[in-house]
Design a protein around this nucleic acid. Structure first.
Lengths: 197, 197
DNA sequence: AACATAAAAGGACAAATGTCCTAACAACAT
DNA sequence: ATGTTGTTAGGACATTTGTCCTTTTATGTT
């Protein structure tokens, strides 16, 4: 889930300071705000300064699938910029969020002229591809129970609290199933505890 | 599934011709051959000249998940080169395959020096991320039936025949489930036909 | 031809997951 | 305080998917 990418953040902050916010601006979003909407044309690339955003598809059958949570130092809208396409998915602020914003043309010239920036973006794309494909594989190879355990770990570790609805969308299951699994886990813990007494 | 990326292919063929195979070599693999094995250290990046390869994870519970089929003009091992990591997954030849092979250091200097190559790789990564995340979402939002219909279309379109086992691994379901779904589809067609008589 | 081996098909049952509903509860505006 | 809305919880049932097994059908080999 959200890993802090300090390199890209300090890079963009350097640009922000140098160019005295001509090309780069700092935007703020309140918790729950829509940052990008699926299908919308966008002209900007964002780099999260702080806070957490969720990236999710809205499928035609009205189900949502969260395929990533992005945090400090992570990039949003770069795929759309690279491929010159409309927004693939929705981006929504899970907490209050600050993000550096710059135009796609600015993004392209950074890629062109700033070797470090380019390498970071390449690495970022590769990393995300790894995460995404590994998760897809895991979710298909194991029952939702194991996905839930992983998710609970991530939440504990990152000290982040997700709504039940978000958890279900991340796991790709129904809320009802999530509740059942949580219940089963709880039961198991109770049994463990009473066993140790 | 496999889309032909002519740009990168002609690019690498130019390099192959120019450098008289000093840095780039053309390798051949027979159908079924292991091209890369998960966890193995690799020093090469490959670009498929012709044929089809499958990329799949072997999970610890012995299940396999095919997350992509790559064809002519598509790149293999670039993520490992970018992130300097061991092979993420297995790559296996589905048909007989010819592929251009070059060292990771050669890959990096191409990225560095050849703008066109770099842009193509960036585009390739972005495109694959789109495919992967969209498929993950689709597979969770819809029952396997719809995934199967999509897969059948892809197969017809690409005129490619997959084994049942590969189809199941691609859909992330058991062979037994695949057979059931195929059966149901067949029944539906029979009903449709007898209805039109 | 005879055999070995792998791939495909499907029965029977168990487990996991989804759908539809209703109820309880908290948060919040009027 | 009251109504409204959104979130959480869970019962009951249907559907989907997995697991285990056996049988059949191809495929290749000696």
């Amino acid at each position: 889930m959200q890993q802090t990418n300090n390199i890209i953040l300090s890079l963009i902050e350097k640009v922000y300071a140098n160019e005295s916010s001509k090309n780069v601006s700092l935007k703020k979003y309140l918790k729950g705000a829509d940052i990008l909407k699926q299908g919308q044309i966008t002209q900007h690339v964002l780099i999260v300064k702080n806070g957490l955003v969720k990236c999710f598809y809205s499928e035609e059958n009205c189900k949502e699938f969260i395929f990533d949570f992005l945090g400090s130092g992570e990039v949003v809208g770069e795929i759309e910029a690279i491929r010159h396409i409309k927004c693939l998915c929705n981006i929504q602020a899970v907490t209050d969020v600050e993000a550096y914003s710059f135009s796609t043309s600015c993004f392209h010239s950074l890629i062109e002229q700033n070797r470090e920036f380019r390498d970071v973006i390449l690495g970022e794309l590769a990393e995300r591809l790894i995460k995404t494909s590994q998760r897809a594989s895991f979710q298909k190879a194991y029952s939702a129970k194991y996905g839930l355990l992983k998710l609970l770990d991530i939440q504990k570790e990152g000290n982040l609290k997700l709504s039940k609805s978000d958890m279900a969308s991340y796991l790709g299951i129904d809320i009802r199933s999530l509740n059942r699994l949580l219940h089963a886990e709880q039961d198991k813990n109770v049994r463990l505890i009473s066993h140790t007494i």
